[in-house]
């Protein structure tokens, strides 16, 4: 039997690893999946929710909306899902994974972000098509990329980016590092980046307004709490936090 000890130990280790990630028995955990652009606002709202519900812990998972939907479809445990656009939310409802109808809670529009000092002298969308300007945008497959395409089409400008990134935060990173002369990101991203970038408003931005819907995920472990969290986001307190961060009303 002693000879089997190492084998038994490795099996035990594997089993104990498999047991990891289970929820705590003591505190109730509410898991919220939210689009990356909601990071700062939802962190704030989660704190508020935890204060109103002692003993409840809000676990936040941020990422590209499409990534998050894929994870939920593959069985990730989520109680609430907030998407950065309607098309991505549709993918969740199409699979009957939504508990009730999604509700719109915010809107966001694009802005040009340039490094401080605006080295390429960008003033508007037309300047982005100038040869020699290093423009970085989101890939057309993700919400911010779809919005970019809509804005460019509306303005009749043919953009030739040097890179198409997978998320809006990647675009912003290329601008804050000074590698790119300009990037197309959300208004709220410019506001959150503070001193690191300068935002240039786009008159054409209204042609691509991203609407953010939120929904309770079908089969949520904490359905009641999940509905309360959605109410918080839709309520006056939630809307104030979102407005402060630069989001528009739904």
């Amino acid at each position: 039997m002693r000879r089997l000890a190492p084998a038994a130990a490795s099996v035990a280790l594997l089993l104990s690893l498999a047991g990891c990630g289970g929820s705590d028995d003591e505190a109730t955990t509410l898991t919220v999946y939210a689009a990356a652009s909601l990071t700062s606002t939802f962190e704030q709202l989660a704190d508020e929710f935890e204060q109103e519900h002692p003993g409840t812990e809000v676990q936040l998972s941020f990422g590209g909306s499409s990534d998050l939907v894929t994870q939920i479809k593959e069985g990730a445990h989520a109680d609430v899902f907030a998407s950065a656009d309607l098309a991505t939310m549709q993918k969740l409802t199409d699979d009957d994974l939504a508990d009730g109808d999604p509700q719109d809670f915010a809107t966001n529009t694009l802005e040009i972000a340039v490094p401080p000092g605006n080295p390429a002298g960008i003033t508007g969308l037309a300047d982005l098509a100038t040869p020699g300007v290093n423009l970085v945008v989101c890939a057309p497959e993700v919400p911010c990329g779809a919005a970019t395409r809509a804005v460019a089409d509306a303005a009749g400008v043919a953009l030739s980016p040097v890179s198409e990134e997978q998320s809006v935060t990647d675009v912003l990173a290329k601008v804050t590092s000074g590698e790119a002369d300009a990037g197309l990101v959300y208004r709220t991203d410019v506001q959150a980046a503070g001193e690191d970038v300068r935002g240039i408003e786009l008159p054409e931005a209204d042609s691509a307004v991203n609407t953010y819907p939120i929904v309770v995920v079908q089969g949520a472990d904490e359905a009641a709490l999940a509905h309360e969290f959605v109410d918080l986001v839709l309520g006056a307190a939630g809307q104030q936090v979102l407005a402060d961060a630069g989001f528009g009303p739904p």
Binding site: G64, D67, A139, V162, Q166, K174
Partner: peptide, 21 residues
């Protein structure tokens, strides 16, 4: 390097881009 078809989007980046859509 970023990610642009034909210039910097190598196979792993292409797969990363594609896995969503």
């Amino acid at each position: 390097a970023g990610s642009l078809e034909g210039t910097t989007r190598t196979l792993p980046l292409y797969i990363y881009n594609l896995r969503v859509t």
